[in-house]
Design a protein around this nucleic acid. Structure first.
Length: 577
DNA sequence: GCCGTTTTCGGCCCGACTGTTTTCAGTCG
């Protein structure tokens, strides 16, 4: 059984937890945790490198972790890890999911009561054995039971579309409060992560205690988790935790920067501040002659850095780039001139062709690519050859009758990639289309190798314009298919196939972590909403945010081309694109 | 365990809040 990147990261994370339980040096614990983060985010085939024992010169992975990852990659196991966890069942690790319980308390529960799973903890609480432990009490015991109940039923992560709606509502309320001078969302939502675990809000006010009180009484506050003079956490009906920090107006830029994160980005920023002779925290700079700061950008400026857009703050090279004045000028959604991959009532869409066209134009777009499903997706009412041929005529007629200078429809298809990598339509029909999106919709359990070959074969077809939702993931619902991103990106560069950034918030696929690499290989991105209704065309706004997170510039995104240029580009043979 | 424009040894972020304490430990972000 070959070791995966995820397995390697999980092993390091488990080691961190187990060392923490044993009361090991917290910095050693952190080193393992950071090692796991490096493994997860590494840009390249880290498993192959570990196997070849070539993990050198990677920040955060020293000699010890290099050797351990090598052992894990070559033997499938790690002796150090095996020994550490010998005394604990798999179920033990569930305990860390519970709110309010950390390594110290879990270690004590384990030592005193033999607790080694959520089930045994529940039993112990119900038998009133937990309240008597030193450091525990009746309240803690009740909270543990609450937390167990919540974990059993509530969602712990939320998609960006769901979170955005909730955040906008709350921000609106905060901004309406007369004592609020400035208010912003911070945290992972501001960094445009694909899913968020909580929402963070920062307000500038001279009445912090009044604001935390106000926050705790919002209609959204189904439950108050903590309430103090400067911070408050609530939970909404849907189970989404929302945190508020109330600070003074002069502290606001610092709090905004600090709580936007990421943690890794902030660690690096703070150590840079130390080199300038200042200490930086969520309230300000301290030290000799601290710089004047009015806006968040002033913090970066004071450290000799260009302003780093929140989407990039993941400690993936943005600080070095900002230092060298080499941050990319990121795409903005207003740069988009059109979009592809949309569905109509002809397959499984909810809106007609005419309605989709009108909505796209309303949004300020100059073109819309229609790509209904193909016949191998009968569940989506996919079109056969005859229906597709008819749709091509319909679109041509629409363009003649209704289009005017400055807007047109492009005829396309979301063609199924069949199990062997062949396509659902023959080349003759594909050649009549303005564009095509090739996607996998069935036989999704192939091995990584087979799936990768299948997709690459489809990309080699001269009439395939772009690859649709590369991994097929449905966020929080279905895992990605096994695919080799590196190989597919290389093949896209080779065959001049565009890769789609499917910005339906259920997908956001290809994942943002891979775009920087794709861009550097010269692969173009198309920001496509996979819209099944007129409203969903607006998903391209999420798409632009995610593209920013992937370091993409205007010139890296196909659908920033204006209509005339786009029309010409689509006529070019692939190898000349 | 990792790292290096103070350092190959000695640092590595720290403040708010809660509950159990009677001055503080643990958790969280």
């Amino acid at each position: 059984m070959p070791v995966t990147r995820e397995r390697m990261a999980a092993v390091l994370e488990e080691i961190a937890l187990l060392l923490e339980i044993q009361g090991e040096n917290p910095f050693k614990v952190r080193a393992y945790r950071q090692g796991a983060d490096v493994v997860k985010g590494f840009d390249g085939d880290i498993v192959a490198l570990a196997e070849a024992n070539m993990l050198t010169g990677i920040k955060g992975l020293g000699d010890a972790l290099r050797d351990k990852l090598h052992e894990l990659a070559t033997t499938g196991e790690l002796g150090f890890h095996k020994n550490l966890r010998a005394d604990y069942p798999d179920s033990f690790f569930e305990l860390f999911e519970l709110e309010g319980l950390g390594p110290k308390k879990i270690a004590l529960l384990n030592k005193e009561l033999g607790v080694n799973s959520i089930g045994s903890l529940k039993t112990a609480c119900e038998a009133d054995k937990v309240a008597g432990l030193s450091g525990f009490g009746a309240k803690t015991q009740t909270k543990i039971l609450d937390s167990i109940a919540r974990l059993a039923q509530a969602a712990t992560a939320f998609r960006i579309d769901v979170a955005t709606l909730a955040a906008e509502e709350i921000l609106e309320e905060l901004r309406r409060h007369p004592a609020v001078l400035r208010a912003s969302v911070a945290g992972s939502m501001r960094r445009a992560k694909e899913v968020v675990r909580d929402l963070d809000f920062i307000v500038a006010t001279s009445e912090p205690a009044e604001l935390t009180k106000f926050f705790s009484t919002l209609p959204q506050a189904k439950e108050i988790i903590v309430l103090g003079d400067t911070k408050c956490s609530i939970r909404t009906e849907a189970g989404l935790q929302c945190d508020l920090r109330a600070v003074s107006n002069s502290q606001f830029p610092f709090a905004l920067q600090y709580f936007t994160g990421s943690k890794e980005h902030n660690v690096a920023i703070r150590s840079l501040a130390l080199k300038h002779g200042w200490s930086l925290n969520e309230y300000g700079f301290t030290g000799e002659n601290p710089p004047t700061v009015n806006e968040e950008s002033d913090i970066y400026k004071a450290l000799g850095l260009d302003f780093i857009p929140p989407a990039l703050r993941e400690n993936r090279g943005e600080i070095e780039a900002a230092d060298a004045g080499k941050l990319p000028r990121l795409i903005e959604w207003e740069n988009l001139r059109g979009t592809f991959h949309t569905h109509t009532t002809e397959s499984d869409g909810k809106s007609t062709l005419a309605a989709m066209a009108a909505a796209a134009e309303e949004l300020g777009l100059q073109y819309l690519g229609i790509s209904d499903h193909s016949k191998s997706s009968p569940q989506a009412n996919g079109l056969d050859q005859a229906r597709l041929a008819a749709q091509i005529v319909t679109i041509a007629n629409w363009n003649t009758e209704f289009a005017h200078e400055g807007f047109r429809l492009f005829a396309g298809s979301e063609v199924d990639i069949l199990k062997d990598g062949s396509l659902d339509f023959d080349d003759e029909l594909l050649a009549q289309l303005d564009f095509t999106v090739a996607s996998v919709h069935n036989a999704t359990t192939l091995s990584e190798d087979e799936m990768t070959k299948r997709i690459i074969r489809a990309m080699e077809n001269p009439y395939i314009t772009m690859l649709g939702h590369m991994t097929g993931r449905l966020l929080l619902r279905r895992d990605a298919y096994a695919v080799n991103h590196e190989k597919i990106i290389d093949a896209a560069a080779e065959t001049r196939t565009v890769i789609e950034l499917n910005c339906n918030p259920k997908r956001l696929d290809m994942d943002w972590r891979w775009w920087h690499r794709a861009r550097d290989k010269g692969v173009l991105c198309s920001i496509n909403p996979d819209a099944h209704s007129t409203q969903q065309i607006q998903f391209i706004k999420f798409g632009a945010e995610v593209a920013r997170k992937g370091w993409l510039r205007r010139e890296d995104v196909l659908n920033t081309k204006p209509l005339a240029e786009m029309t010409e580009w689509l006529k070019l043979p692939k190898q000349r694109r």
